[in-house]
Design a protein around this nucleic acid. Structure first.
Lengths: 223, 223
DNA sequence: AAAAAATGTATCTAAATTGTAACAATTACC
DNA sequence: GGTAATTGTTACAATTTAGATACATTTTTT
């Protein structure tokens, strides 16, 4: 289980991030100011920290000094106004940052990227009633196991890790079949078809005509 | 892969930047004078240009004129002495600038910021209640998704990127259909019609008789 | 080596997109 | 107002793309 600490004093934003990351299968903890965050970090280990720069008591910068010693990747949240003058001191330690207001989808994508970079991709992906146990290469739907072939599983993982993101056909071919593969073939479509059937994802895997496919979670909240 | 062009005639400085940006994972190319830079820019696309103002043959200013048409963000390098008098003419097109001598860490931070800002600006175009998520090929109006075909989306993007600017029919055909396309057909008009309908842009997309079309944001027009 | 499973290809069908042609409406100009 | 040029509209044809099916090829397992 991947653990993420959300340090953000604005409750609505914190809740939004919490809701979306939890739904994406991460184990989240919230802290509402720097001191609380420091306390929590004393006791428990996290795989990623999402850190607002403007915090009461201790600023994100000060907290950063402490986090750096823990070697946990950090994604900063910062308001646009405070970007230029303050960012340079920070970027040395941060893995990435987002400027508020941001799209929650983008944050999710960056979380994935940072975790993957740290080789800590989540072991269990969830989408509605579907759970993918990445480590053991097993998929269950509503608790019951569904047997997928390796290629099918790869494709499902790619789609799930990029929920609500349109994946261009070229990119899918590139990531799963390798760059040189012929994009004109019906191979991808066929695998999509098989996934849809096996997992009952006819609605969730949207076809973006002439572009690609997108795994869509309609409940998702965006700012 | 993000490509950066470094235009700097002083070899030690150029090397320093090259070394650090390469280490940071960017794909770099060096040019040692303005002419060389212009040549390289003819052939290849870059995501960012780092440009010294004092160059042999062509000055940074002259090169800037050319770069502006390419719409690539630029970070200027300038000596302190030449700052006041010359900088204002430049800043219009540049994303940022650095005064020599500078800390390489700071340059790295700015590179990050500019790239992020630029991609951010690219990622989501907005016009009134319409938002175009370029990356995901999605359009929403007042939060609700409107499905557009690729051609429609291309045309909408072109109009939105040139708001309040009249686009000649020839130019639109050139940019979206390619230069050789017959300008006499009703194709463009038809697509405009479809956009107007789908997005309720009957008022905002103005017809400029005998010339072309203009996406007009009435709030922004000042006399 | 044979059998089974996985993966890919060929081909057809269905659907969506895009473009064309004919005509109606509008605009600019006399 | 009348006229010619231009743009808008409609219906539909052509083209492109995705989905379905059967089957061939490759890989894995026995």
């Amino acid at each position: 289980m991947i653990r993420i600490l959300i340090v953000e004093d604005e409750k609505p934003i914190s809740d939004l991030i919490l809701w979306n990351l939890t739904k994406a299968g991460y184990c989240c903890t919230c802290a509402y100011d720097g001191l609380e965050a420091a306390d929590i970090l004393e006791d428990r280990r996290f795989d990623l920290i999402i850190l607002d720069v403007m915090l009461p008591h201790i600023s994100g910068y000060e907290l950063m000094e402490y986090i750096r010693s823990l070697e946990i990747p950090v994604i900063f949240l910062t308001a646009k106004s405070s970007l230029e003058d303050r960012m340079k001191g920070l970027t040395s330690g941060a893995e990435d940052y987002m400027v508020k207001p941001f799209e929650i989808v983008e944050l999710l994508a960056r979380v994935n990227i940072v975790l993957r970079r740290y080789r800590k991709a989540e072991r269990c992906l969830k989408f509605r009633d579907i759970a993918v146990d990445v480590e053991n290469q097993r998929v269950t739907r509503d608790g019951r196991e569904i047997v997928l072939t390796p290629k099918e599983l790869e494709l499902l993982e790619l789609l799930m890790r990029n929920r609500n993101i349109t994946l261009f056909r070229e990119r899918i071919y590139e990531e799963i079949w390798g760059a040189e593969y012929s994009v004109e073939s019906r191979t991808l479509d066929l695998h999509i078809q098989r996934l849809r059937r096996k997992l009952g994802l006819e609605e969730s895997i949207k076809t973006v005509f002439k572009v690609g496919y997108r795994m869509e979670d309609t409940d998702e909240v965006s700012v």
